[in-house]
Amino acid sequence: MTNEQSSNALKLFIVLSRAHKVIHECTFQFFQENGLNPTEFAVLELLYHKGKQPLQKIGNKILLASGSITYVVDKLEGRGYISRVSSDSDRRVTYAEITKEGTAFMDVMFPKHEEQLVELMGALSEEEKLQAIELVKKLGLSIKDLSY
């Protein structure tokens, strides 16, 4: 490994970390102002766009430990945004499903979230966004194959 490789790897790490931090802080504030945390929003967004989901699968889809899903689902269910639905074909499976109240909430929230993301990413042209997507995806996939 050369000094240049090491230096560039460190710089990239810092740049990615700082960009993530700023984006996370802005979106976290938005969710908080609307009575949610990022995990609650992620569960609602998944159900809003993909329909009912088995509780056991939600954690993998939003990158959350399965133990935390029950807590998040309980909170969202308590607010009337989602409900639990038993499977007709397999008694071991319970689904989370967005309610009419949850859909109405997301009908308002999601476009605002989307607008915020467009604004946050506004420094990049559409071509640069596509390049960034491909480069970060390539990086993520290559790291996944490394063993530490």
Results as ranks from 00 to 15, higher is better:
S89D: 12
L55E: 15
S142Q: 13
K52E: 06
C26A: 14
S83D: 10
V72S: 07
F28M: 03
F41R: 06
L44A: 03
K112V: 00
G80D: 10
D145W: 00
L135T: 07
T39Q: 06
D145R: 14
V118K: 15
V73F: 01
T27E: 14
G102W: 08
P38C: 04
D74T: 12
T27Q: 13
V136P: 06
K138E: 05
A96I: 05
T27W: 02
S87M: 11
E126P: 03
I143C: 09
R84E: 04
Q116W: 13
C26V: 15
E4W: 02
L10M: 12
L12K: 04
V73I: 15
M121R: 11
M106H: 08
K21T: 08
A65P: 01
V15G: 02
E77R: 15
A19P: 02
V73T: 15
Q56G: 06
R84S: 02
L12C: 06
H49L: 15
T99V: 07
E115N: 06
E119Q: 13
Y71C: 00
G140L: 14
S147V: 14
L76M: 11
G35T: 09
Y81V: 06
T2C: 10
E126A: 13
A96W: 01
K21Y: 10
F31K: 04
P111M: 05
A104K: 08
E128H: 09
V108I: 11
G102D: 07
D74C: 00
S6M: 12
G59K: 04
R91K: 14
I98Y: 00
V85Y: 01
I143V: 11
I62D: 02
R84M: 05
I98S: 00
P111H: 02
E25C: 02
F110C: 02
F30T: 00
Q5P: 01
T39M: 04
V93R: 07
L12N: 08
T2I: 04
V72T: 10
L44D: 03
E114M: 02
I58E: 04
Q53R: 11
A19K: 10
P38W: 00
E115I: 00
D107N: 15
I82F: 03
E128K: 13
A123S: 13
H49I: 06
C26F: 05
G102K: 12
P54G: 02
E134V: 01
A19M: 13
G35S: 09
G35R: 15
K52C: 00
T27M: 15
L141D: 11
F41H: 12
V108A: 09
E45D: 14
L63P: 04
L63F: 15
T103Y: 01
A65T: 05
F30Q: 13
Y148F: 14
L36D: 08
S68R: 05
F41D: 02
L36H: 03
V22Y: 13
A42I: 05
N60E: 10
L139T: 10
A132M: 13
K137L: 03
D88G: 05
G51D: 00
K11H: 01
V15L: 12
G78C: 10
T2A: 09
R79G: 12
L117N: 13
